[in-house]
Amino acid sequence: MMTDAPTTTSTLPSYFDPRVLAKLHGLELRARMVVEGFFAGMHHSPHRGLSIEFADHRAYTQGDDLRHIDWKVFAKTDKYYIKEYEQETNMHVLLVVDCSESMNYRSSDDLLTKYEYACVASGAIAHLALRQRDFVGLALFDEHITEFIKPSVRHDQWHTLVRTMSSHDRQGSTSLGATLAELGERLSQRTLVIVISDLFDDHEAILKGLTQLRYRRHEPIVWNLWDCAELTFPFNGTVLFEGLEQSGTLVAEPDAIRRQYLEEVQQFQNDMRTSCGRQRISYSVFDTSQSLSVTLTSYLAARSNRLRQRSSRVMR
């Protein structure tokens, strides 16, 4: 006799979901959950030892391993050149996180603040990068750089980064332009600079800072964080808006100005996208209610893009 066997299904919580992460305590736990969740979804590669990447040619000198002579170049030039390889982890990544007061905003207790979201994303990226033996550093800023940790692959680097982000107080207003200019001077290595901020600063100043980074051959990418309420403006009735960065207060009826507000936001994003596009800087808008997997995917895409560029440059 056949009977229908009872079936049980269980749904594991998605640790990319900001609402799930908001229920977890501690940046370290949140970031680790994100990364573990990310890897749980990846296939193990069947190829090993291929993480060595060609970097450059140099003239053969006595004592060099003959296996590294590039015979194709010898055939063309009749000279011996040794191929130099560089491991992927050699990439320098600097996470530039905005810790101004405006990043403290969240529209719902179910969500992460923009700063928490930035920290979880940064922690996850740092974990991911360090596993790939990339150099990872951190810069926290508001009106100026408040914390700076030089990119490194030390074994306790991740904990250092997470501790720093966790213990930092958020206050002051955003001054991203000056911060980027200062960072450009501090970084000696060519670095992938990931700017995670709500960009509530002067548009021209931001662009100026990014341009200076580009000038110093760094590769900035900009992640513009928004709370979902900032993108939809879902208020009604009479509301007293209290500015977070000493920007004053405003009594308004949201229904009357919603259209104008959303147009302003859209205009800002379009301007940023256009300006960054001219500088070949990646600009992405993230909603803090969005899954964090998007940020990791975005990071990996940027990293892959950078490695591809480097490879093509060597081949030329």
């Binding site: 709500d198 007293l240 808006f241 500015g243 920007s247 104008q260 507000y261 302003e264 800002f268």
Partner: peptide, 16 residues
């Protein structure tokens, strides 16, 4: 009125 803390104040001021 209802009090709401708000970060994107510059956009709001321009919209108003």
């Amino acid at each position: 009125y209802r009090r709401v803390p708000w970060a994107a104040m510059s956009f709001l001021l321009r919209a108003k």
